[in-house]
Amino acid sequence: MSAQQDQRRGGAPILEAPILEARGLTTGYGGALVLEDLDITLHEGEVLCLIGHNGAGKSTLMKTLFGLHPAEAGEIRLRGEPVTGADPKSLSKAGIAMVPEGRGIFPSLTVNEIFEMGMWAVGVPEDERAERRDWVFSILPVIAEFRHRRAGTLSGGQAQMVSIGRALLGRPRILLLDEPSIGLAPKLFQDLLAPIRELQQREGLSILLVEQNVREALKISDRVEVMKSGRMIWKGLPEDLADNSKLMALY
């Protein structure tokens, strides 16, 4: 990992704190632990792919990092500053956005309304909203075509695009993507994530990506961690995972 990081930074040693970091994170539901003493580090400008079977705790980790689920123990730091227990609104303002699992849209609202409400929710100033919307349309141009439609009438791929677009409206520095490809054809996956990878590389976004579709996800990731029963059991580079036939067979 560090070799790649060093290379990207022109060999300079990494001194600054990771952009997002959790140490000893423990949480669960009603006494049953889902995350147990988990450590995770997301560096500035990288795409970290998190893989693991259903029930490994990936979604719970995402929710805990974004303040949607309380941490029972451990610490979360954003650029070195503790943010454990912060709510999604303040984390959004601090530059994190989350694309939740499933269709992250409201079926009875139009796409325009979802965008408008999304920007209002995270406090985007009124005079910047039109510009932000156009910026998202420039990244995911198809959205502009169905912006007046009710989100409930969109296809799975379109809905996911709107969900990602909405997350981008706050111009986050960190994007938490929870299974964006679920229910989508592999071709759609590339249509969806290729523009995001492009944006990420252009603007140095940091992305934590949870995916079941491992092969496709590895193509756009800088690093991979494998999660099982609430802990990390393997970490490395995408090509190492691809070479590791035992792990690849598992996931």
Partner: peptide, 19 residues
């Protein structure tokens, strides 16, 4: 709009940063 959205999904409302 947020009230209409609340009817769709209170869980998602939180992910959008609303209470």
């Amino acid at each position: 709009m947020a009230l209409r959205a609340l009817a769709d999904s209170p869980e998602l409302i939180r992910a959008y940063g609303l209470d």
